[in-house]
């Protein structure tokens, strides 16, 4: 996991959510989450491990991994979160251009990562998928969806997040 990416997302989230964002020590990926036949990791199982590590003074905990994530019935997921819960996880694997055979694009990767981090955090704030394409909570099953949807919450979704963080703003 590139520490530069972590540092960047820490600053971006902190600025956007108007709240303190800390980086936790690296956690090993639980071996039980590995699906040998698919060479992927089951996000639901990782999420359960993450939950055990939530510090008492943290509102939310978001895991970021390089591993390719899936759930048993889906070929892949970009991430997963507890709806209205505490923890979420985002995978970088399928956000990278090189996954699709293209040249690496760091700024595009960071842009996608920010959207997916906000998206999964949104779920932890109880938000479900939004019907507005301009909202970061819009359902994205492919990177094309990720790239076309908005990079912030719509007014209605933002209101929910703000009421939970006690701060926030619209860009």
């Amino acid at each position: 996991m590139d520490p530069g990416i972590l540092k960047w997302i820490q600053e971006d989230m902190s600025e956007f959510l108007w709240t303190t964002v800390r980086i936790m020590p690296t956690m090993p990926v639980p071996p039980s989450s590995f699906e040998a036949g698919r060479n992927q990791y089951i996000s639901t199982k990782i999420l359960k491990e993450i939950l055990k590590e939530v510090p008492g003074n943290a509102l939310k905990l978001l895991g970021i991994t390089d591993k390719d994530l899936c759930i048993p019935i889906l070929t892949y997921v970009f991430g997963e979160a507890q709806l209205g819960g505490t923890a979420g996880i985002v995978s970088l694997a399928r956000l990278r251009q090189e996954f699709y055979g293209s040249r690496p694009d760091q700024s595009l990767l960071l842009e996608r990562l920010r959207k997916e981090c906000l998206h999964e955090l949104g779920h932890t704030f109880g938000l479900i998928h939004c019907s507005s394409k301009d909202c970061v909570m819009y359902l994205s099953n492919t990177v094309v969806d990720v790239d076309t949807k908005g990079r912030t919450f719509c007014r209605a979704c933002q209101a929910v997040v703000s009421s939970n963080t006690g701060a926030g703003r619209e860009e």
């Binding site: 089951i42 759930i71 019935i73 709806l83 998928h129």
Partner: peptide, 17 residues
């Protein structure tokens, strides 16, 4: 019958509202 399937699928569908 598999718990992990139930949890992950319902979680995923719930996120869709």
């Amino acid at each position: 019958d598999e718990e992990i399937v139930r949890d992950s699928l319902s979680g995923w569908l719930e996120e869709d509202g």
